[in-house]
Design a binder for these strands. Structure first.
Lengths: 226, 226
DNA sequence: TCCAAAGCAAGAGCACCGCTCTCTTTTTTG
DNA sequence: CAAAAAAGAGAGCGGTGCTCTTGCTTTGGA
């Protein structure tokens, strides 16, 4: 068993943690593409082949880091979700937390929202951590709907079936129009963050904080919040 | 001189083109990270070291491919920008062209709008090609403003100075409110496309075409188009 | 016209990478 | 206490970007 029985089991946990720690350091410093198992091993003073006792491949290590990144971002969003009561303010606050986390952890952000690492497809285990930010946004809108703080956004007729299916899937208690608008706003939020982070706003947007605040405020109104 | 004088100069152009062609093939097939100079050379039947006579480094080759990708996407957008007269329809059509290009060229899209290749910073030469889609969107809004087809969107007071600076920079003939909303919508468009392309919509949005059409339609209204 | 200069191809080589296999040592377990 | 399982180390394979040296060919000026 891999329980915390012997000293060996404890050592395994420690070494695994040390590997992830060093890998995380390299990820933050140089980015995912320059993360090398050999360099991690070197830094830890072990043979490069020994790493493979803990992570079967580089991709498995990356998967762990991806999950950590999703959880770290999710926590950042969850931590501020109740610091306001007004729906729009709550929405904007959470969006700002997402942006703040992204600016503080650019390589981690690129790892999870940039181009998927080549040939790499994320396993199912990443799905729950990846959903946390979305769930926070859903929660805000849900509370607003309960408190009558939502004007239903318009919905094209052709989108009706998809909106109903989507609402049933992710938030059964939300009106289809709101659910559809929410998903769109969710994607658009990461468009704003990504453009700033990846340099697309260079020489275009200078004073980025108020710009972002205003844009996500409009996003909130697009979902129906007020 | 590097003019088309001798047979040597002509050969250089041909070899350069052949390298880019093969590299483009590999990029489309496997993605940027698996593009290897050695593999390109192998495929072309030349020594790997010979490539360096044409491209000083792998990054220089990638820069060329980035420019090509921007231009290809820009052309796709420009090609459809006049197929409608109604401002909202024009906007949606161009957005659909962007999405269509992205779905048809996922690796090229990832190259230019995914995480920037680590350590790599795009040189100034990429700026004009990178601007083409934005210019198309600006053109649509400009025409709409002239034709009185625009309701000015709201603008937070704190954003006023940035909006004026931004408008002066990218579209002096556009009202600041419109210019600011336009830039935000521009970024949000790529959020929608990226989320679909990079799998974030898996198990969330099923019927993606109407969803996208509706979302970018709302985007157009956010800019003031109607 | 001839000859030096410049351009180009090729091969060997360096330092790195992910990953595998084998061998030895250590710890756990029946 | 012995057998089995786990872990570490080292060598090695095939791959990468990139450099350097060595010849060969085209080019342009005296």
């Amino acid at each position: 068993m891999s329980s915390a029985h012997g000293a060996r089991a404890r050592a395994r946990i420690e070494v695994t943690a040390a590997i992830k720690e060093e890998a995380s350091r390299q990820l933050a410093a140089e980015g995912a593409a320059k993360l090398s198992l050999r360099a991690v091993a070197r830094e830890l003073g072990m043979a490069s082949s020994a790493i493979y006792r803990y992570f079967p491949s580089r991709d498995d290590l990356l998967t762990d880091l991806i999950i950590d990144a999703y959880n770290s971002l999710g926590e950042a969003a969850e931590a501020v979700q109740h610091t306001a009561t007004d729906p729009v303010r709550r929405w904007v606050t959470v969006c700002e937390a997402v942006r703040g986390w992204a600016l503080a952890h650019p390589h981690e952000y690129a790892l999870i929202y940039g181009s998927p690492v080549p040939g790499y497809t994320a396993p199912q285990t990443t799905v729950p951590p990846a959903s946390r930010v979305g769930l926070v946004l859903i929660g805000i809108v849900r509370d607003a709907v309960k408190g009558r703080g939502v004007t239903f956004p318009p919905l094209a007729a052709e989108l009706r079936p998809e909106a109903e299916r989507l609402a049933a899937d992710i938030a059964p208690d939300l009106p289809p129009q709101v659910a559809a608008a929410l998903v769109a706003a969710w994607a658009q939020l990461f468009g704003l963050v990504g453009f700033e982070l990846f340099g697309q706003f260079n020489r275009v947007v200078e004073d980025r904080e108020p710009f972002f605040r205003h844009a996500v405020g409009q996003l909130a109104r697009g979902v129906g919040l007020r």
